[in-house]
Amino acid sequence: MRHQSGDASLLRRLNSSAILRILREADVATLTELARAARVSRPTVEVIIEELLADGWAEECDDEPGDRQRGRPARRFRFRASAGHVVGVGVGHSSVRAMVADLNGTIVAVRKQPLPLNTPADERLDAIVELVSLVTGEADLDVRQVSAVGVGTTGVVNEAGQVVKSIALPGWTGLDLQALLAARIPAPVAVENDMRLAVLAEHWRGAARSCDNVVYLFTGDRIGMGLLIGGVPYRGAHAASGEIGKQPNDNWVAFRHVMDYAMSAEPGELRSSRQSAEFAIARARTGDERAQEAVREFAWGLAAGLITVVNPLDPEMVVIGGALSMAGDLLVQPIQERLDEYCLYPPRVVASALGSECITLGSVRLALNHAERTLFTMPG
């Protein structure tokens, strides 16, 4: 948006930001509708719209069929989402994922880079920077054209984007991730805990779009939890919300039954807790009764932990996410039964449909939030 000087310039920039925000929320609007919503005169809107058109932030809609037959139609305008783009990055144990989205959140490019489990911190940082460059290139963009880059990572992440503690990624504890990435990526960078971004993604694009109080349970190689309270991801006193922590001997009690089943079914195969659960789930789907019982016990173990959170927080919904969400009703139904039995106000339990993309989508939403604050709140 264009700059002028003095008080008139500030007022014009404030009005421009307001009209641009209204235009984005309205889908399509006429000059009269914009003037009414922004509470400014129509001539003021006309001048601002011409500037927004010239700068590429707005576009004029084509006439609808029949408009010419009714005489001269009112000019209609819409927000031009492709005027800006953001990048979301999900940093996992064994891979880094990235997405590019326009300012309406439409995904225009996706890329994934596998990584060895014990990748050193400096190499993981290199992979993130390289992937941001590659995925923006796939979207026919230069990284310098990106409005913001959001990054989701496991660990305790403070408001400055520093990883205070991490038990999952080697060399990650104490890393000033946001500053390190900002020094190498020529775009604004925001870093957040992955579980908080996962529940944000569910609220934005997933099962929890109509809910403001949600518990998100991540099931995979580890157990994590994201909390949405009043429509906002909960951070906690030490920004540690979402990190359940390390278990003795890396043994999650809830996995015991599926691990015992997998070992008894194929004694020669060594499987991780997640692999054991996936094995039992696959066998359960074929009708194996012992596998079905093991999966049910696994679900009840997850429910036991959820009850201690659900009763005091009183959420509307529990979303089962992560790699094991593909189990669907094999997990959802027994968890729902337990919550129905033991919770004062049982929330609805659903399986996430976002799958492995949840954290990356949450990172896109984080980047969009940053871009929107700049575009619609701070005049300039």
Score class of each variant (00 low, 15 high):
Lys165His: 11
Lys165Met: 10
Ser166Ile: 01
Ala168Tyr: 07
Ala168Cys: 08
Leu169Ala: 05
Leu169Glu: 03
Leu169Trp: 02
Thr173Pro: 06
Thr173Cys: 09
Gly174Trp: 05
Leu175His: 03
Leu177Tyr: 01
Gln178Gly: 15
Gln178Asp: 10
Gln178Met: 13
Leu180Glu: 14
Leu181Val: 11
Leu181Asn: 07
Leu181Lys: 04
Leu181Ile: 13
Leu181Tyr: 05
Ala182Phe: 10
Ala183Phe: 09
Ala183Gln: 12
Arg184Met: 10
Arg184Leu: 13
Ile185Thr: 04
Ile185Ser: 02
Pro186Ala: 03
Pro186Gln: 02
Ala187Ile: 07
Ala187Tyr: 01
Ala187Gly: 09
Ala187Arg: 00
Val189Ser: 03
Val189Leu: 10
Val191Ser: 11
Val191Asn: 08
Glu192Asn: 14
Glu192Ser: 13
Asn193Val: 09
Asp194Leu: 13
Met195Trp: 01
Arg196Glu: 07
Leu197Gln: 04
Ala198Arg: 06
Ala198Asp: 03
Val199Lys: 04
Leu200Phe: 01
Ala201Glu: 05
Glu202His: 04
Glu202Trp: 01
Glu202Leu: 08
Glu202Ala: 08
Ser210Asp: 15
Cys211Phe: 11
Cys211His: 13
Cys211Ser: 13
Asp212Ser: 15
Asn213Gln: 07
Val214Ser: 03
Val215Ser: 11
Val215Asn: 07
Val215Pro: 05
Val215Tyr: 05
Leu217His: 05
Phe218Arg: 03
Thr219Ala: 15
Gly220Ala: 10
Gly220Val: 06
Asp221Ile: 11
Arg222Ala: 11
Ile223Cys: 08
Ile223His: 13
Ile223Thr: 12
Ile223Phe: 14
Met225Pro: 00
Met225Ile: 15
Met225Gln: 12
Gly226Ser: 07
Gly226Glu: 04
Leu227Glu: 00
Leu227Ile: 13
Leu228Met: 07
Leu228Tyr: 03
Leu228Arg: 04
Leu228Ala: 06
Leu228Ile: 01
Ile229Asn: 02
Ile229Pro: 00
Gly230Met: 05
Gly230Ile: 05
Gly230Cys: 07
Gly231Lys: 09
Val232Gly: 00
Val232Met: 08
Pro233Arg: 07
Tyr234Gln: 00
Tyr234Phe: 15
Tyr234Lys: 02
Arg235Tyr: 05
Arg235Glu: 11
Arg235Ala: 14
Gly236Arg: 06
Gly236Thr: 05
Gly236Val: 09
His238Trp: 05
His238Ala: 14
Ala239Arg: 06
Ala240Met: 08
Gly242Cys: 09
Gly242Phe: 02
Glu243Gly: 03
Gly245Arg: 06
Pro248Thr: 02
Asn249Cys: 01
Asp250Ser: 14
Asn251Glu: 14
Asn251Leu: 11
Trp252Tyr: 12
Val253Lys: 09
Val253Tyr: 10
Val253Asn: 03
Ala254Leu: 12
Phe255Arg: 00
Arg256Glu: 10
Arg256Cys: 00
His257Met: 02
Asp260Lys: 07
Met263Gln: 15
Met263Ser: 14
Met263Tyr: 04
Met263Trp: 04
Ser264Ile: 01
Ala265Lys: 10
Ala265Phe: 04
Ala265Asp: 10
Glu266Arg: 14
Gly268Pro: 07
Gly268Asn: 10
Leu270Ser: 14
Arg271Gly: 00
Ser272Ala: 09
Ser272Trp: 02
